[in-house]
Amino acid sequence: MTNEYPYTSMRDRFDLSAYLVLGPDDCKGRPLTDVVDRALAGGATFVQLRAKNADAGELTQMARDIAQIIENNDKSDSVAFVIDDRVDVVWQARRKGIKVDGVHIGQTDMEPAQARALLGDEAIVGLSAQTERLVRLINELPDGCIDYIGAGPLHYTNTKPEAAVVEDDGAKHTLDETQINTICSACDFPVVVGGGVKADDIPMLAGTKAAGWFVVSAIAGAPDPEAATRELVARWKAVRGDAKHGYAKRDTARSHATR
């Protein structure tokens, strides 16, 4: 597949340790770009745009604006930027030269193999999974299909109240430390954990096998997004330091990325 994307691939360099998820409805009336800018200043390492009610044109413009903020912070080569669910928007944005590094999809969205086929070898593809059973199924996907897993929720949340771990018998619950480690141990991919994460949760998460945490309200809804991000990052690094989780093994023979 010809790579028309003007940016270096981040598939082998992304950092899940401080992962921000946000959309316009999460920012307490503030511009989306202002919150992203402040979060980057505080140390956010990964950004996901999630705006379920926006159309393709609106999402593409938001993506352009966020990509510009990342570039203005000189972090186009260090902070990955993905869009939730909308593989079509990611495809369009990348062909317009917008710095969108990939997509994050759920269990009911486009199949991961189809997302990879559409976006090519350069893009990041993340996938949600809540249980060890789902992780084992994900491990059976073709090599190079996905790059990381998002697991949760750690707590029930207002931003995604329907989210819960659902067992085979229908029982619903949130994740605890043991379950996080079980998922990570079963997984061939780095795992980022979220769902109502607050600063007081970070030391526990940093002590697990997770590659990082993801948040919405803890940063996007905070009075001072920069200070909130800085505190979350500091608490993680107090336990984990600068250590990073390794990347999923994949066949790089067909990758056009510059390392």
Rank of each mutant, 00 (worst) to 15 (best):
V166Q: 10
A164Q: 07
S128Q: 04
C187M: 09
C184P: 08
K160W: 09
T157V: 02
P153I: 08
G144T: 08
Q179Y: 13
G150H: 07
V191N: 03
I146E: 00
L154H: 08
E177M: 13
I202Y: 11
P153T: 08
A117L: 12
I183L: 13
N139S: 07
V125D: 00
G152N: 04
V125S: 01
H173C: 12
L118S: 01
L175N: 11
L127D: 00
P142K: 06
L141V: 04
I138C: 05
N158R: 12
D143Q: 14
I138H: 06
T159E: 02
A171K: 12
R116F: 05
K198T: 10
A199L: 02
Q179S: 15
P142G: 04
Y148I: 02
I202Q: 12
P153A: 13
T131H: 10
G120T: 05
H155Q: 10
E122S: 12
T159W: 03
F189W: 11
L118R: 10
L154Q: 07
P161T: 10
T159D: 02
V166D: 03
D176T: 09
S185Y: 04
N139Q: 09
L137P: 00
Y148G: 00
Y156Q: 08
V166T: 15
G152I: 05
Y156M: 10
L119S: 04
V197Y: 08
Q179M: 15
L118Q: 11
E167H: 14
G170K: 08
D188P: 00
K160L: 01
S185W: 02
A151L: 09
P153E: 02
H155K: 11
H155L: 10
A163C: 04
P203G: 12
I149L: 15
D200W: 04
I180R: 12
Y156F: 15
K172F: 07
E162I: 04
L154R: 13
V135W: 12
A151E: 04
P190T: 07
V166E: 11
Y156A: 14
I146Q: 04
T131Y: 10
I146C: 02
L154E: 01
V125C: 05
E167I: 00
K198E: 10
T159V: 04
V191T: 08
S185L: 13
V125Y: 02
R136A: 06
N158E: 13
Y148S: 00
K172A: 14
G126N: 03
G120M: 07
A129I: 13
A129Q: 09
G126M: 04
V197L: 08
C145G: 00
E177C: 11
A186F: 11
V193L: 07
L154D: 02
K172W: 06
A171R: 14
A123Q: 05
V125G: 01
G195Q: 08
Y148K: 06
I138M: 06
R133Q: 13
N139R: 09
T182Q: 15
Q130K: 14
I124F: 07
V193K: 06
G170P: 04
D147Q: 10
H155Y: 13
V135D: 04
L141N: 00
A163Y: 08
C184K: 12
F189N: 01
H155E: 09
V193T: 09
